[in-house]
């Protein structure tokens, strides 16, 4: 089943120099293992290919039911150097929530996951 991250998680992002961070938080605690399993570093790297110029790092915070991603080379130089509308990476959060995951039907049903809208 296709599941979009925006339906199972919320997020906030910020900046450190030319790196944007995106904290992704499970909407329900029981959905956190799903994030750990499917929202991998590789998957996120692939998602932002062509959008950022650097690598992706992932950290796990099971205590907060959250993952933290660092997206390097995301901000056109960052801070005051950046010419981007989103120079401080404030809405990379919602860009990551566009991610669509393919979850085995049985697992999706068991967790009560909502199906992707489109």
């Amino acid at each position: 089943m296709r599941v979009q991250l925006v339906d199972v998680a919320h997020a906030r992002s910020g900046d450190k120099g030319d790196t944007a961070n995106v904290g992704v938080i499970a909407l329900r605690p029981e959905w956190y293992p799903l994030l750990e399993k499917y929202v991998t570093r590789d998957r996120v790297r692939e998602h932002f290919r062509g959008v950022i110029t650097g690598d992706v790092e992932r950290y796990e915070l099971p205590n907060l039911k959250a993952l933290n991603f660092l997206l390097h080379g995301a901000l056109d130089g960052g801070g005051t150097l950046s010419l981007k509308t989103d120079a401080q990476g404030k809405v990379f959060s919602t860009a990551l929530l566009r991610l669509v995951l393919d979850i085995p039907d049985a697992e999706a049903r068991q967790l009560g996951l909502p199906q992707a809208r489109a």
Partner: peptide, 27 residues
């Protein structure tokens, strides 16, 4: 939680002049 992850780097090591705080310990 949204504010805790804002501008986060490595959550194990939030470095300040006084102490290194571990965000993975927060309940």
């Amino acid at each position: 939680t949204e504010q805790l992850v804002y501008e986060m780097g490595d959550p194990h090591s939030y470095i300040t002049p006084d102490v290194i705080a571990d965000f993975t310990s927060i309940q």
